[in-house]
Design a protein around this nucleic acid. Structure first.
Length: 358
DNA sequence: TTGTATGATTCGGA
DNA sequence: TCCGAATCATACAA
C-alpha cells in the first residue's frame, strides 16, 4: 500500500476510486457505505456539480461546502495529492537559469547609460562617442548635447515603459493571487502552486520586457551610429585650432611632417584628435603644393606672425637677462629666412619628389 | 542655388 | 605604417 492510498484510507477515502469521483452514479453507490464515506461522496458530488450551476447557486453551494464538517480533512488530502502528483513533476523543470539574452541586453543598456544611474553612464558614452567622432570640446559640444538629449529621451521612454510593464505585472499578479486565494476556499491550491503561477506570470512579463529592451538597444545603436558618422557631421575646426595648425605648418615649411609627439601636442592645443591632425597636415601639404601661389599670402602672414612672436620672446628673454633658447627653431629665423627655406623645400619636392621628406 | 573650402576616406606605393 | 593623390561629403559664403 503506498502513502497516498494509506492516507486516503485513513480518512475513509479508500473506498472511492479517483476515476469515479466525478460520476454521480459512483458517488450514489458509495452512499450505501458508512457515514464518513457518504459525507465525502456528497462533498465531491457537490464540488463537481458547481460548474454546471448559475453563479448565485454556485455561491450558495460554495458557502455550504465551506461549512461542511468534512471539508478540512478532504481539502488537506487533495492538497497533498496535488503536491505529490503535479508539483513534484513540474517543479524541477521550471527552475530556469537566467536568460543569457536578457543578461546581454541588460549589460548593453547599462553600458550605454540607459538603464544605469543617470549621471555618468550617458554622458560617458556621449563623451566617448564625441571623442570617436573627433569633435573638439568647443564645437563638438553642440553634437555632444544633442546626443545626450536624444539618449535622455530614449532613457525616459524606456523607463516609463518599464514602469508600465512592472505596474501591469504587479497588478495582474495581485489579481491572480487574490483569485487563487479566493478559489482556494473551494479547491485545493497550495502556496507552492500560487508561487508557481506568479513565476509563470513573471516569465510572461519578462519576455515582453525583453522586447522592450531589444527595441531600446536598437534605438541606441542607431543613434550612436548616426552620431559617430563623422563624415555626415563634418564641422570645420574653430579659428584658433586652424591658426595653431597653420602656425606650425608655416614655421616648419622646410619639413612639414610633425612627429608623433608634435601631433599629440597640436591635438591637445586644438582640442582635436591626433588622426585629425594627421589628416589636416596631409590635406594641407597636398593643397599647398598644388597651389603655392594661392597660399603664398597666407605663408607670409604666418611667417611675419612667427617672427613677431619670436622677437617678443627674445626681447622678454634678454630683459630677464637670460640667453635666448637655442632649441627654438622659430626664434632663430627671420621671416625672410623662413620664406627662403620654404622655397627651398618647394624646389626640392618639385624637382625631387621622391625625397620630399627630409 | 552654386561655387569654393575643408575635413574625412580610400587606395596604391614605398 | 605613413604618405601622396584622388575623391567624397558637408559647411559656408555669395
Amino acid at each position: 500500500m503506498d502513502d497516498q492510498t494509506r492516507m486516503m484510507t485513513g480518512l475513509g477515502l479508500g473506498g472511492i476510486p479517483q476515476a469515479d469521483v466525478g460520476d454521480p452514479d459512483s458517488v450514489r453507490k458509495q452512499q450505501s457505505l458508512g457515514q464518513p464515506q457518504q459525507d465525502i461522496g456528497d462533498i465531491l458530488q457537490q464540488i463537481m456539480a458547481i460548474t454546471d450551476e448559475s453563479l448565485d447557486e454556485a455561491q450558495a453551494r460554495k458557502h455550504a461546502l465551506n461549512c461542511h464538517r468534512m471539508k478540512p480533512a478532504l481539502f488537506s488530502v487533495l492538497c497533498e495529492i496535488k503536491e505529490k502528483t503535479v508539483l513534484s513533476i513540474r517543479g524541477v523543470q521550471e527552475e530556469d537559469p537566467p536568460d543569457p539574452q536578457i543578461m546581454r541586453l541588460d549589460n548593453m543598456l547599462l553600458a550605454e547609460g540607459v538603464s544605469g544611474p543617470e549621471k555618468g553612464g550617458g554622458s560617458a558614452a556621449a563623451a566617448a562617442a564625441a571623442a570617436a567622432a573627433g569633435g573638439s570640446p568647443n564645437d563638438g559640444s553642440i553634437e555632444h548635447s544633442d546626443y545626450r538629449a536624444k539618449l535622455a529621451q530614449i532613457r525616459q521612454i524606456y523607463h516609463s515603459e518599464l514602469e508600465k510593464y512592472e505596474q501591469a505585472c504587479s497588478e495582474f499578479t495581485n489579481h491572480v493571487m487574490n483569485l487563487l486565494r479566493e478559489q482556494s476556499r473551494t479547491r485545493p491550491i497550495s502556496p507552492k502552486e500560487i508561487e508557481r503561477m506568479v513565476a509563470i506570470i513573471h516569465r510572461k512579463f519578462s519576455s515582453i520586457q525583453m522586447q522592450l529592451k531589444q527595441s531600446t538597444c536598437e534605438a541606441v545603436m542607431i543613434l550612436r551610429s548616426r552620431f559617430l558618422d563623422a563624415r555626415r557631421k563634418r564641422r570645420n575646426f574653430n579659428k584658433q585650432a586652424t591658426e595653431v595648425l597653420n602656425e606650425y605648418f608655416y614655421s616648419h615649411l622646410s619639413n612639414p611632417y610633425p612627429s608623433e609627439e608634435a601631433k599629440e601636442e597640436l591635438a591637445k592645443k586644438c582640442g582635436i584628435t591626433v588622426s585629425q591632425v594627421s589628416n589636416w597636415f596631409g590635406n594641407k601639404r597636398i593643397r599647398y603644393k598644388k597651389n603655392i601661389g594661392k597660399f603664398q599670402e597666407e605663408a607670409n602672414l604666418y611667417a611675419v606672425k612667427t617672427a613677431v612672436d619670436a622677437a617678443n620672446a627674445s626681447a622678454q628673454a634678454s630683459q630677464a637677462n637670460s640667453p635666448a633658447t637655442p632649441n627654438s627653431e622659430m626664434a632663430l629665423r627671420s621671416p625672410r629666412a623662413l620664406q627662403q627655406r620654404a622655397w627651398c623645400w618647394m624646389w626640392k619636392i618639385q624637382t625631387h619628389p621622391a625625397n620630399s621628406t627630409f
